[in-house]
Simulated assay, not measured.
Amino acid sequence: MKRYLEETALLDYFHPHIQQIISAQGWTRLTKKEQILGIYNYVRDTILFGYNRADDIPASEVLMNGYGQCNTKGVLFMALLRAVGVPCRMHGFTIHKQLQKGAMKGWYYGLSPKEILHSWVEVFHENQWLNLEGFILDIPYLTKLQSKFKDCEGSFCGYGIATDNFQSPAIYWNENDTYVQKEGIARDLGIYESPDDFFARHQQNLGTIRRGVYQSLVRHLMNRNIRQIREM
């Protein structure tokens, strides 16, 4: 398990801002289950759903941004878990771009690749690996989305969610797997000891020009769309 506890360039859990949050939240004084639950809920709801400048940014930057998506919130989640001694690793995938429709729309949805890089975090707890993906969308955003599409009671794909139970997705953790984008998965890219390893082998299929447009414009449009739903 030692390799699943190591600090890396992305999992920079000795960064002062990360250590400050750990101290303020009192996670080191809790049981392992309480640590996982506390960190899970913090990353899900305190770190809002939104799009950062890139996937491969360090946990400290995600924390300072105060928002993130599957890959970046996963990096922060892993850093916090490892900082308190909970082993974890990353499982990589691609998802169908339809999952982003609504958050991403118009011309920039048309220009986005058909498959988008995705990941969830696997946590070792009580002698088993658990799949944790349900931390991606914060509860206020998800609640407003459910209200906007209140007539949908089964499967839903769009606005950052892909689930077969839209009104009650498996996002609450009690020693179980959690999911919120699983039904949008296209390809399984395997398990990695760290996000550093994952992103060294896989990047979003954007190209130089589209990457620049995403960083300077598209992600801000997407974050505006998400804020408008959260503030409805």
Rank of each mutant, 00 (worst) to 15 (best):
K2R: 05
R3E: 06
R3S: 08
R3I: 15
Y4I: 14
Y4S: 13
E6I: 15
L10A: 03
Y13A: 10
Q19L: 07
Q19Y: 05
I22C: 12
G26A: 11
G26W: 01
G26H: 01
W27C: 07
R29W: 13
L30I: 14
K32I: 13
E34A: 00
N41M: 10
V43P: 02
D45R: 03
I47A: 07
I47N: 00
L48V: 06
N52D: 08
N52A: 04
R53Q: 14
R53F: 08
A54E: 13
D55Y: 05
I57G: 04
I57V: 04
I57D: 04
P58D: 04
A59S: 01
E61S: 14
M64E: 08
M64T: 14
M64Q: 10
N65L: 15
Y67V: 08
Y67Q: 01
T72Q: 04
V75G: 13
V75L: 10
A79Y: 05
L80C: 01
V84H: 01
P87H: 11
C88K: 13
C88E: 01
M90N: 00
M90Q: 11
M90I: 09
H91T: 10
H91K: 05
G92W: 00
H96F: 09
H96K: 15
Q98D: 12
L99F: 00
K101V: 12
K101C: 08
G102I: 12
G102N: 03
G106V: 06
G106M: 04
Y109C: 09
G110N: 13
G110M: 13
L111Y: 13
P113R: 06
K114D: 08
E115V: 14
H118D: 07
S119E: 03
S119R: 07
E122A: 15
E126G: 06
Q128L: 06
N131Y: 02
L132N: 03
E133H: 02
D138I: 00
L142T: 08
L145G: 08
L145E: 02
K148T: 03
F149P: 14
C152M: 11
E153T: 12
S155N: 07
C157A: 01
G158M: 10
G158S: 04
A162T: 09
A162Y: 06
T163R: 05
D164V: 02
N165Q: 12
F166P: 00
F166S: 14
Q167N: 02
P169A: 00
A170H: 14
A170V: 09
I171E: 08
N174I: 09
E175C: 13
N176Y: 04
D177H: 07
T178W: 01
E183Q: 11
D188W: 12
L189N: 03
G190F: 10
G190L: 15
I191S: 12
I191V: 15
Y192D: 11
Y192T: 04
S194F: 03
P195T: 01
P195W: 11
F198K: 08
F199G: 01
A200V: 03
R201F: 01
H202A: 05
Q203I: 09
Q204K: 09
Q204V: 02
N205H: 09
G207D: 15
Y214S: 06
Q215E: 09
Q215Y: 07
V218L: 03
L221H: 04
R224M: 13
R224E: 11
R224I: 08
R227K: 12
I229M: 11
M232N: 09
M232V: 15
